[in-house]
Design a protein around this nucleic acid. Structure first.
Lengths: 336, 336
DNA sequence: CTGAAAGCGCTTACAG
DNA sequence: CTGAAAGCGCTTACAG
C-alpha cells in the first residue's frame, strides 16, 4: 500500500506538506496543493487510519453503546431508529460507527467494554443510558472521552425524551375520549430511568381529570409482546369493566391487542388500547395503534450533533426532544 | 495513560518482554509473567489499540457492511437478527464491531466506504451482499481483507439461506392445505439475489402439484408493509376468488393482513396469508403468521465463525443455512 | 527465556 | 508557505 512518503516523493514535497494538504491546514500555495492531490490520485493513496490515530490521538471512531439489560437490544425497534439517526450524521461527518453492547451484570460493566473505553480507540461515545442502577458512561467520563447520554442519567450532556409530556398526552387522550376505567400495563420500577416521569405524567393528567392514579388497576410487564398479552389477560379478568388499556410501550400494546382478539373483544369498539414509542410496527397492527411518537430518529440525530459539538470544543446544551400524540384506530370513546 | 514502557520499568523487564507476555507468546518464566501481570494491575495498564494496530497490522475490528438500497436497513428486522448473531460471536472473541452502511448509487459504492476499506482499519468484513448489480465486497477482496458474504454472490466464502427449499416449503404447505387459487406478492426481479431461487422453489412445488406457476396472479411489492397492503388490494380486486396470498416477506404479509381486515375478510377462514423470514413481529400479528424461518441468528453466528476461521488462516466451507416452515394461524384449508 | 533496536505511517511543534 | 525531525505506543525479527 502506498504511504504518505510515496506521495511526497512523487509530488516532490515533504511528508509534512502532504499531511497538511490532506488535513486541509491553510497556508500552502495552490500549486503545491495541486501537485499533492495529483500524486494522491495517481498512486491511489489512502491514509492509514491506525497511523493517523496513533500520532494524532484521534481515531475518527465513535462508539454507540447499548447495554444489554432486560432485553436483547437488537429486538428493540426504538433503538434502531436512534441508530439510524446517529449513522446518518456520522456518515456525513466521515466518522465510523462502532457498536458496543456491554453486558451489565449486577451493575458491573464487562471487562471487554472497559478495555475498549480505555484503549484510546474512541473519539466519542453515545450511550443509551436508561438503566437506573448503572451508568455505562462512568468509565467513559473518567477517561475523559466526550460523551452524550441518550435518555437517562442527568449526565453533563444528554438528550432525552419528554416522558412527562408523553404520559400526560396519552392519558389525556383517553380521558378526553371519556374513559375512566383505565387499566395500566406498566413495567417494574427502576428498569428504565424515564418510566418514573412517564408515570408521573399519567398521574398528573389523571388528577387533572379528578381521577386517582393509584386506584387504577395495573399489571406489570417487561416490555415484551408476550408480557403485554399476559398483562391484558390478567387485567381484563380481574376487572372486566375496563374500557381502556394504557400500555407503556408499543410491543406490550401489541400483546394486549392479541389478547383482546383472543377474547373476542373488538378494538376499539369494546376496548381501547394505546401504546408508547410509535415503532414502525405500530402503524401496521390491526387496528393501527394510537401511541406516542418519541421521535427516535431525531433523538439519534441530535445526540450525534451534540457529540460533534463537543468534539469541536463547544459546550452544547442538553436537549429534551418533544413527543407527539399519534392518534390511529385503536382508541375510541367507551361504549359502556 | 500508562504505556508499555511504564509497565516494563515497574516490572524491571524490557518492553519486548511485556509485549510478549501480554500477547501470550510462549517462552517466558512463570516468575517473569507474574512480575509483568502484577505491574499491569498496579498501574492499570490498558494497551493502546491504535499503536498495536499500527505495528502489528491487526486492529481487532471487523466491519459489518449493510448497503443501503431498496430500504432503510435499520427498518429490516431480519438484518437485526443477523447482527445480533455476529455481535455475540465478536464479543466472545474480543473483536469490535464497526457498522458501515455504504450508499449504492447506480452500482457505485460511496467514497467514504472505499476509504474505510483501504484504510487498514479492518481485520475482516462481513457483508450483507444481496444486491445483484453490485457487490460491496469487490473493494474488500481487492484489498485482500478476509471477507464473508451473507446471502448472495457466489463469493469465495459465503453463508446463505436455502431459499429454494423455503419456496418449496411454503408453497407445498399451501398446496397441501388444498389451495389452488393462490396469489403471489413478489418483488421486482434483481432486487435481491436470493429471490430467484425462492421463486424457483415455489415454481417447482407448484409444478409437482400440477399447477403452472406462470398462471398464478402476481403483484409486485417492495418488501414494505404498505406495498403488501397495496398488492393484496390489487390481487383481491382483480381475482376475488383467490383463497391464499403467498408473500415474499413477512412485512408484506402484514400489509396483506391489514388489507384483508379492511375488506372484512377473516384470516384464515376466508383467506390464507403466508409470509417469509419469521421476523419477531410475525409471531404477534393477529392472527400470527405462517411463515418460513430463515434462522437469521444462526446466519450471523455462522458468518462470524467463518470469518474467524479465515483470520486463523483456515479455509472454511461456504454454508447454506436450512430453513424451517413455521405454521401459525394465518393459514388454513380453503372453504371455497 | 530475554532485550536492544528498528520500524509501523502518520502528525506536529519548531525553524526557516 | 515548506521541510527536517521527533515522537505517538506498540510489535517483531534478530541476537544473545
Amino acid at each position: 500500500m502506498p504511504t504518505l512518503e510515496d506521495v511526497a516523493r512523487r509530488a516532490g514535497v515533504s511528508t509534512a506538506t502532504v499531511s497538511k494538504v490532506l488535513s486541509n491546514t491553510p497556508y500552502f500555495t495552490e500549486a503545491t496543493r495541486n501537485k499533492v492531490m495529483l500524486a494522491v490520485k495517481e498512486i491511489g493513496y489512502v491514509p492509514n487510519l491506525a497511523a493517523r490515530a496513533l500520532s494524532s490521538g484521534r481515531t475518527q471512531i465513535i462508539a454507540v453503546v447499548f447495554p444489554y439489560v432486560y432485553d436483547a437490544i437488537f429486538a428493540d425497534p426504538r433503538i434502531l431508529c436512534v441508530m439510524e439517526g446517529i449513522d446518518a450524521e456520522c456518515n456525513l461527518r466521515g466518522y465510523n460507527l462502532l457498536i458496543s453492547t456491554p453486558r451489565l451484570i449486577e451493575g458491573a460493566v464487562d471487562e471487554n467494554y472497559l478495555q475498549l473505553i480505555q484503549s484510546g480507540y474512541l473519539d466519542g461515545v453515545i450511550a443509551l443510558n436508561h438503566v437506573p442502577f448503572a451508568s455505562v458512561l462512568d468509565p467513559v467520563l473518567k477517561k475523559g472521552i466526550p460523551a452524550v447520554s441518550i435518555g437517562g442519567h442527568a449526565a453533563a450532556y444528554s438528550v432525552s425524551s419528554d416522558h412527562h409530556a408523553g404520559g400526560v398526552l396519552i392519558m389525556q387522550h383517553l380521558l378526553e375520549l371519556g374513559h375512566r376505567r383505565i387499566g395500566i400495563i406498566t413495567v417494574p420500577d427502576n428498569i428504565n430511568i424515564g418510566t418514573e416521569q412517564l408515570l408521573q405524567g399519567i398521574r398528573d393528567a389523571a388528577q387533572a381529570h379528578g381521577l386517582n392514579f393509584d386506584d387504577l388497576p395495573k399489571a406489570v410487564g417487561d416490555y415484551s409482546t408476550a408480557s403485554g398479552a399476559d398483562g391484558a389477560a390478567q387485567l381484563l379478568q380481574q376487572h372486566p369493566d375496563l374500557t381502556a388499556l394504557l400500555c407503556l410501550n408499543d410491543r406490550m400494546a401489541m400483546g394486549a391487542l392479541q389478547e383482546a382478539h383472543r377474547l373476542g373483544l373488538r378494538v376499539p369498539d369494546q376496548l381501547t388500547i394505546t401504546g408508547y414509542d410509535d415503532i414502525p410496527a405500530a402503524a401496521t397492527t390491526v387496528p393501527p395503534l394510537t401511541t406516542i411518537d418519541q421521535h427516535s430518529l431525531t433523538t439519534g440525530y441530535e445526540a450525534s450533533r451534540m457529540l460533534f459539538d463537543l468534539l469541536d470544543g463547544q459546550k452544547p446544551e442538553s436537549k429534551i426532544i418533544p413527543v407527539e400524540l399519534v392518534i390511529r384506530s385503536s382508541s375510541a370513546p367507551p361504549i359502556r
